[in-house]
């Protein structure tokens, strides 16, 4: 709050009403509803529901399929996060270095930010088309019979590639702006102190980028967990069958397709707790960062 805030009583309340009412109806109500539903079993024919306590959760814990999906989600998240951060960092460092055409490169490398995930997935469908997809043909030349949607590994591969392609631009923008905000004097001091360019990068630039990197780490994990929904849904053409899927996709499939509201809600609650833990971790780290710099 500002030192000299206005003292009006009704105006701030009036200003807050739209925001508060929307989040109460469309955030807190659904969140509470999810928690409540997770303790009930929905009648398959729509005749009411019965309280089952933690049964939905325990059946999740016992479910081999849920374990499989969880495992895939973890692997998928790690791969997507790592590759989109690493590639973006490489490109940002190069773009920050070149003098000629720096602006054009920025444009050429960031526009994909605006592509919707399902459209990216659709592009993946074309590129990885079983019969004539350019990438399928490319892999064929190396003796890899790429089989989207028929082969578990190949499908997972395509999901990772498309998700990374879609995410690199965001990371690139942040890294580039982080690099550009490193004071010129610091770079010049490093230039005098260290002869090797890679030494300068790892000793000076990289640590200074760490806060940006950490922020992006959280952003990317969230992206891989939630925003890749569109990519996955299009790549499997809405029919996951034996193909890999992420936890969020399973929430949707079980709840919306399988009509298992209780099970799906339990999964939602688990995801909520996961995100909550992630955020608490993030706040902790941010606080640390503030304390030590």
């Amino acid at each position: 709050m500002k030192r000299a805030g206005f003292a009006s009583r009704w105006l701030p309340i009036l200003l807050l009403v739209p925001q508060l009412s929307i989040i109460l109806v469309f955030f807190y109500w659904p969140a509470a509803y999810a928690v409540k539903s997770s303790f009930y079993l929905q009648d398959p024919f729509g005749f009411g529901q019965t309280f089952v306590g933690l049964e939905n959760y325990s059946s999740l814990a016992d479910s081999a399929e849920y374990l499989r999906v969880t495992n895939f989600t973890v692997v998928f998240t790690v791969l997507v996060t790592f590759f989109s951060l690493a590639l973006a960092l490489l490109l940002a460092v190069k773009a920050d270095k070149v003098i000629r055409g720096a602006k054009s490169y920025r444009t050429l490398l960031m526009w994909v930010y605006a592509v919707a995930p399902p459209v990216a997935g659709y592009m993946g469908l074309i590129l990885f088309n079983q019969r004539w997809g350019p990438l399928t043909e490319l892999f064929g030349m190396f003796g890899w019979e790429f089989n989207l949607r028929a082969d578990y590994f190949d499908t997972a591969f395509a999901m990772v590639v498309v998700s990374v392609w879609k995410q690199v631009p965001v990371n690139f923008i942040f890294f580039l702006s982080g690099l550009q905000s490193i004071p010129k004097s610091v770079r010049e001091a490093a230039l005098i102190d260290n002869r090797s360019a890679s030494g300068r990068f790892w000793d000076v630039t990289f640590p200074l980028l760490a806060p940006t990197g950490f922020f992006l780490l959280i952003i990317n994990i969230t992206y891989a967990l939630f925003d890749t929904f569109g990519v996955i849904d299009t790549l499997v053409k809405g029919e996951p069958a034996n193909n890999p899927m992420t936890l969020v996709y399973k929430v949707y499939i079980d709840g919306f397709r399988g009509n298992d509201l209780g099970g799906s809600s339990a999964q939602s609650v688990v995801l909520m707790l996961l995100v909550l833990a992630l955020t608490v971790f993030q706040f902790r780290m941010v606080e640390k960062r503030i304390h030590y710099t």
């Binding site: 969140a31 509803y33 999810a34 925003d227 929430v251 949707y252 809600s265 909520m272 995100v275």
Partner: peptide
Amino acid sequence: LLPLEVRILPS
């Protein structure tokens, strides 16, 4: 903290 995706069904 909670993206729409995790509370999609109740919403």
